[in-house]
Structure formats: C-alpha cells, structure tokens
Design a protein around this nucleic acid. Structure first.
Lengths: 230, 230
DNA sequence: TCACTAATGTTAAGACCACTAACTTAGCGA
DNA sequence: TCGCTAAGTTAGTGGTCTTAACATTAGTGA
C-alpha cells in the first residue's frame, strides 16, 4: 500500500511538470529502482494509474474548496471566496486541473459513476451553499426570465437535487449553481489554454465581470427558505 | 504540397477516431506505404504536424460559424443560431474541438500570435456581430451593475476592440461577447468530458438556460449605435 | 550533353515506451 | 514441512519518434 502511494506520488510529480502525457511507467520505476514489470503488481496498466490520479486530483479540489475559511465575512464575501478559490486552485495546479477536466481518462462508465461523481458533488455542494446564502438580497429583476425556463427544466433539477441530498434548495438555486459551475470552467479552461491572451483584457478582469454577473443573478433569486446558515 | 495534404488528412482521420493522442506517424506512413523517415521532409516532428492541425481545425470552426445562414430571421434568432451553432460544431467534431481548446499544442509564443489569434478573432467576430444586433431591445436593468465594472476594464476592452478592428462596438458588447465565449466553452467542455451527466439535467437544457441568460443580458445593454445591419 | 542541385525518397539504427510470460524468492499459515 | 501468496526479477515483443547516411529522380544552367 505504501508502494502504491509512492508510485502515485511520482506519477503526480510527472503530471505537475509535463501533464498527463508526461507520465511514463519507465520513468517511475527508474526513480524507484524497480524493474518495469513490478509496476503491474499495483496497477493493471498505465490508464488505471491515471484514472486513480484523476480521482485523487478531483478530491483534492473538493478538499480545498471544503476547507476554505468561510463564515467570517458576509455571504457575498463567501460566494466570492468560493468562486475565486476555484480559479486559484486551477491556476496553482494547472496540470492537475487539465487532468480532471480536459482529459477523458476517467470516463469509463462505472468508474465515473462510482468515484468521480461523488467528488464532483462535493465541489458542487460548496458552490450551492454559497449561492443559496446570497439569494434574495435584491429585488428579483431576472426572475421573470428565469422562471419561464424553470418551467421546462424544473423536474430535471428537482430529480437531481433530491437524488443528491439537495432537496432543500430551490430549482432556481440549483440552476444557477450549474451555470456557475460551467461558467467558472469556461473562463478557467480558456485561460489555461492561452485562448484569452488575444483579447488584451486579462483573464483577471474577465473573471471579475463574470463573478459580478453571478452575484447579480444570485441576488435576484427569491430568498432561500432553508440552509441560510452560512 | 499534395503529399502534405494527404498526411494531414490521414492525421485528422486519426484524431477524429481517437483524439490527438491517437496520431502516430507510423500509422500515417503505413497508410501511405512510405517509410517513416520520409515524413520528416514535410514536418519537423510530430508536434509541428499537430500544430498545423490545430490551426486547420480552428479555421474550420471559424468557417462554419461564418457560413451560418443568418439574416433571414430576427436578430434574436440569429444570435440563437450562432450560439447553438458553436455547440453543434463541437458536438459533431468533439476531437477536433478538444484539439483546439483542450490541448496546449499550439501554445508556442509566435505560432499562437501569428496563426491562432486570427482564427480565434474570426469566430469571435461572428458572435460580436450577433450580440450587437440584439442590444437595446429591453429596458436596461443590468446596466448599472455592468457599468460599474466597465469603469475598471473599459480601457482594456477599448484597446482590444480598436486593435482588432472592432472599434464600432461598445465596451458593453465587447465584454458580453467575451463572457459569452467563455460561457459557451464552459458548458461545451464539461459536456464533452462527461462532467454534466451527474446532474441528471441534460446539457441541452442547461445550454438553453445559458442561452437565455445571454439573450437577457444582451437585451439589457444600451442599443448599439452602428453596425445594426444584421 | 553534362555536372550540379533540390526534392523526395530509402535503409538502418538508437533510444525510448508499454506490456507480457516465465521464473524466483521470501514469508506465513495449516 | 508443504503449499500458497505477495512482490519481485529477467528477458523479450512489438510499438513509438527521430536521426544519419545514402539513393533516386527531375530539372536547370552552362
């Protein structure tokens, strides 16, 4: 079990330096003074090792988000911290981020369902909590538009929410949480790929704009009835 | 030159089937009944070939967007067509999309500036046009919030706009265009990675929600003064 | 016509890489 | 002591990119 940890540790080092492509079993065993074949006692093949690393990385993100120091400031500040924290983690661990969100490594049917989805839900829960705490702090200018959409998607959201232990949140919060999640990753992934440099406007300021839009949309939601604790 | 085309053609076939990782020079020359070394007459190495393919793929997306049949319907319908068209292209060419937006292949300093940025600008221009045509169709509920942000970022946007031949657009339109771009890719990249399946709510409906939010934000912008042609 | 050149190949080889089969070795429980 | 299992080994197969040196061909200027 300790050997497994050492293998993963070395593989993660390779990822940090050169991304998933840079992971080579030869390099790992060279570092461990082991014969190449020995590695197959611990992982079925290279892909299995990478899948494990995807799982670990996903959980590290979730841990980081869960461990954010919240509660001290206002709900608005907390939401800000969560949004910016997600981006910060990605910028500090670009190759780990790419491993999770820009590869198809862990996409195997049952692997994803059993291991990846829980990790994803943990991250999402942090965002949902932060969003719900901000709702209803401003008159609901956007509600009209959104409610029209909710009619068609409310069932799906309700199903997802109930199945994920999120029954206490309105479909409006759930919908905005999903959009927040995709918007975050939109900026982050383009930023990491260098696709925003052409615009001259830095990713920083663009991110500020998006954060502001999310705040504004959250504030215009009807107030959350429960779970306003933090 | 025709040989170059054949090489790229075969490489693109490999990408379509298995992504960038599946591109192997051996496989290409095998298909062409050539010796492996001959390939280096046409490309410096494997990365140079891939960089060329990134460039081609990016331009194909731009061509596709530019070639969309617009103008027949209303401005709102046109914006819809552009947004949904982007996603459709990605879903129909998932591996080409990943090649562009989820690899760091063409990130070489001068290569990106000289070849990739023009292609990116072409795609972006389509979106900006469609957005500008929709502005001012509703009272400006969101302007207050955005204008506060514009103060801090307006210079950057102005610089970018002027340098890219987009002087006629307001910074509001430019900002929303950038956010639209990142939001599109946020949903698309998570969808392609299978990261939205956990939510139960389909990517389709989530995309609808985002499109609606973009429409709504565009409508609340001050009317565009020029370039209202289509 | 003839030598020179450029384009376009080739063969051969080096240095990696993932992975497999077969064998060894050490420890441990019955 | 016997047999089982965990954790290694060596040796080898077949795949990969890439380079160096050599071969062929077509065209071109003198």
């Amino acid at each position: 079990m300790q050997t497994v940890q050492e293998i993963k540790q070395l593989a993660m080092d390779q990822i940090r330096q050169g991304g998933a492509d840079a992971v080579t079993l030869s390099g790992i065993v060279r570092e461990m003074s082991m014969s190449p074949a020995a590695l197959y006692r611990y992982f079925a093949n290279r892909d299995a090792l990478l899948a494990d690393l995807v799982f670990d990385a996903y959980n590290e993100l979730a841990d980081w988000l869960t461990g954010l120091e919240l509660g001290a400031g206002s709900a608005v500040k907390n939401l800000d911290a969560v949004l910016r924290g997600t981006r910060r983690w990605a910028l500090e661990h670009p190759n780990a981020y790419r491993l999770i969100f820009q590869t198809t490594i862990g996409s195997g049917e049952e692997f994803a369902a059993d291991r990846l989805i829980p990790a994803a839900s943990r991250s999402m829960a942090v965002i949902i909590d932060a969003l719900a705490a901000v709702t209803g702090q401003q008159e609901a200018t956007l509600v009209d538009n959104r409610q029209r959409a909710e009619v068609s998607v409310s069932e799906a959201l309700r199903t997802w929410g109930d199945r994920s232990g999120l029954s206490e949140f309105s479909t409006g919060v759930l919908a905005l949480a999903l959009l927040t999640w995709t918007r975050l990753h939109g900026i982050i992934s383009l930023e990491l790929g260098g696709h925003l440099t052409a615009t001259g406007i830095g990713a920083n300021t663009l991110f500020d704009l998006e954060v502001q839009a999310i705040h504004s949309q959250a504030a215009s939601l009807p107030p959350a009835t429960k779970h306003l604790s933090h």
